[in-house]
Design a protein around this nucleic acid. Structure first.
Lengths: 220, 220
DNA sequence: TTGACAAAGTAAACGCAGTTTACAAAATGA
DNA sequence: TCATTTTGTAAACTGCGTTTACTTTGTCAA
């Protein structure tokens, strides 16, 4: 086998070093603060070396966030345990918001910047993408709620309802990340805003539902 | 008066030329596309000249958008004509969304980027700021709704309710601007999403209101 | 052991960004 | 007329992502 093995390990170690340095900068100061030169300086290599391990800066940052995105998916999957569909939706909202507020820079990258071009990329590209999984989980939960007669009669389209729920919670988080600190709005505590949104949006979509009486129609 | 007058006019004209060139670039390609060099080239002056009229790029772009911000304020004020508070809130939501979707780059600058530091700035800084006026208008409308017993008993705080309504609509617009085109979500038409949000959020906040709501409960 | 070859690394540069320095030209007002 | 202010410029500075051209180093077959 020779030393090839060791070299591979060393290469991997350097790659990890790069990611660690970048993660530090990214978490602390955001995307723009991650400069190739700053990373290079932290790891005491020349900037060019980074390009031996990553195609470009975007590649590096996306790789960097992959792990944290899994955390995001897991946090939402946890909420998937709640039994009642409506309560489950609210729980997912809280989990979603918690992730965004605790990882503002990751959140900005995932949901507040233009997403990368998916032109010409196949489905493989978005397999194992926690964003996709999370959306699917939400939509399926909404569908269950509809099937069980928990939604208002006007809302029969699970996609539309899921997109509305998502938008509501996203709005709270995005506004908090962009506008917190503005002196001209007397912002209520963020926890209260998350709670109000989760409640209001689910109540609004389910208001005047026929009844939970009718036993669940199976389907979907 | 001498030629001083003419020179002032000429200076003003050049300033306008700069703004026009910048506006063109900004509306078409967004903040990053507005480079000082590109502006200079369009107006056939050297880049340095721009700095005789504007302190820096941010100053220029903010000045550039001031006019369009007025349009934003006006669009929302229009919705202020609607009589019923709840219908007025929905109308404001539609107006807000329409502005954001028709002026994506302005919207990004106003609501999706970190706002400038207000550290040490006095109240004058945000007088005549349409953002502020619009928020105040929304909050006052919410307060009216509360006073008329149109809101659910749990919602007695006009600030919190206004912030929730704002977040909901913002979520729809922001998600549309950042994620439209993503292939892994079967996006519903944006008009339907705006409508669903306006309805759901207002219904959710007003559901089970004590007073005249009973008769008003239309199916959607 | 040697020597070809690939891998890993570097210094310096390229192009583009915002911005500034140092200077020239022109208009103004005394 | 002439000093002063205004208006403009060319060229540069710094910092960014990225690349070119080169050196060093380790590996492995002959």
């Amino acid at each position: 086998m020779g030393p090839t093995n060791r070299r591979e390990r060393e290469k991997e170690a350097l790659r990890t070093q790069i990611l660690d340095a970048a993660r530090y900068l990214f978490a602390r100061d955001g995307y723009d603060a991650v400069t190739m030169r700053a990373i290079a300086e932290r790891i005491e290599y020349s900037p060019r070396t980074i390009y031996l391990h990553f195609q470009d800066k975007e590649d590096l940052v996306r790789e960097l966030c992959r792990h944290d995105f899994q955390v995001f998916g897991a946090e939402l999957a946890k909420a998937g345990q709640v039994k009642s569909p409506l309560a489950r939706i609210k729980a997912m909202g809280r989990g979603y918001a918690a992730f965004g507020l605790q990882n503002p820079n990751h959140y900005r990258l995932m949901f507040m910047s233009d997403s990368p071009d998916y032109e010409g990329k196949g489905e493989e590209e978005w397999k194992d993408n926690p964003e996709v999984d999370a959306y699917a989980l939400l939509r399926d939960t909404v569908q269950q709620a509809i099937d069980q007669g928990l939604m208002a009669p006007a809302y029969t389209d699970a996609e539309l309802v899921a997109q509305t729920v998502w938008a509501g919670i996203h709005g709270v988080v995005a506004l908090a990340l962009a506008k917190e600190g503005d002196p001209w709005v007397d912002w209520r505590p963020i926890a209260a805003r998350v709670e109000a949104m989760s409640d209001a949006i689910v109540d609004g979509l389910s208001a005047g539902a026929a009844a939970p009486a009718r036993s669940a129609r199976k389907g979907r």
